[in-house]
Simulated scan of single mutants.
Amino acid sequence: MRLLVLATAAITVLLLLLRQGSAARPEGLINWEPIKDLNDLLVWEVAEYAVKKHNESARTKLVLEKVAKGETAGFLGTTYKLTTEVKDGADLKSYEAIVWNSKLFKILLLFKPIEGNM
């Protein structure tokens, strides 16, 4: 129970930082570090989780094709900010995904299309 309360508080703070950063960009509020190996198994697991959760909530059938860019930030776990390329039928589209990943669970915080690529 204590861990759940702590995780909820951490996610709330992270969401607030990301929302504030939407106007001033989160880079000034969160120390993002580039991911060196975008083919790392954990990076792909996080990206696939993001697409799966989006598909469940939006009732779509996107398929992950590539992780084009990625950054992480440590905050009571690891937060991943990924630029993904997905297939939507025959179309290739780009989405930004932000996933909070701890040892116990993952939470999709954001999955939005990247403007100009839709």
Rank of each mutant, 00 (worst) to 15 (best):
E96R: 09
A47N: 04
I98G: 00
K112H: 09
K36S: 07
G74F: 06
V99T: 09
L82N: 05
L3M: 13
S102N: 12
L92S: 08
G116N: 06
P34R: 13
A9L: 13
W44A: 00
Y80H: 10
L4I: 14
W32M: 08
D40L: 00
P26E: 07
T8R: 03
T84D: 08
V63M: 06
R59V: 02
S94F: 11
S57M: 12
E85F: 13
G77P: 06
G70H: 01
G74V: 09
A90R: 04
A73Y: 14
V86N: 04
G21V: 04
E65S: 03
T72H: 07
F75Y: 15
G70P: 07
D37S: 04
L92I: 07
R19I: 06
E85T: 09
S57V: 11
V13M: 00
L3F: 12
S22Y: 09
Y49L: 12
I30G: 03
A7Q: 00
N101F: 08
F75N: 13
E115R: 12
S102E: 05
A47K: 03
I107R: 10
E71T: 06
T12R: 00
G116Q: 13
R59P: 00
S102C: 06
I114G: 15
L16E: 12
S22T: 10
K53C: 06
D40K: 01
T72C: 07
D40R: 00
L16I: 09
A73P: 05
L16D: 10
A47F: 02
K81T: 00
G116C: 15
K61N: 15
L14H: 00
L108A: 14
L17H: 12
I107F: 05
H54M: 04
M118G: 01
T84M: 12
A24F: 01
T79L: 08
R19V: 07
T72F: 05
L6R: 11
W44K: 04
R59A: 08
K81H: 03
K106W: 01
L38Y: 15
Y49F: 11
L64C: 04
W32A: 10
L16C: 09
W100G: 10
W32K: 13
F75M: 09
E27N: 06
D37K: 06
V46K: 13
I114F: 03
K103I: 10
Y80S: 09
E33Q: 12
V46R: 11
Q20N: 11
P26C: 04
E27S: 13
V46Q: 12
L17Y: 08
L76M: 09
T12S: 02
E65V: 10
F75H: 13
A9H: 00
W32N: 09
L29P: 03
T78A: 07
F75E: 11
F111Y: 15
L29C: 02
V43M: 11
V51C: 06
K93P: 03
N31Q: 13
S22H: 11
E96D: 10
V5I: 05
T84W: 07
V5L: 06
A47S: 01
T60R: 15
A97Y: 01
Q20F: 13
I98D: 02
G28L: 07
W32R: 06
K53W: 03
A97W: 08
N31L: 13
E65L: 10
A9F: 05
W44F: 01
K81L: 02
A10H: 01
L14F: 06
V51K: 07
N39A: 14
L82M: 01
A97H: 01
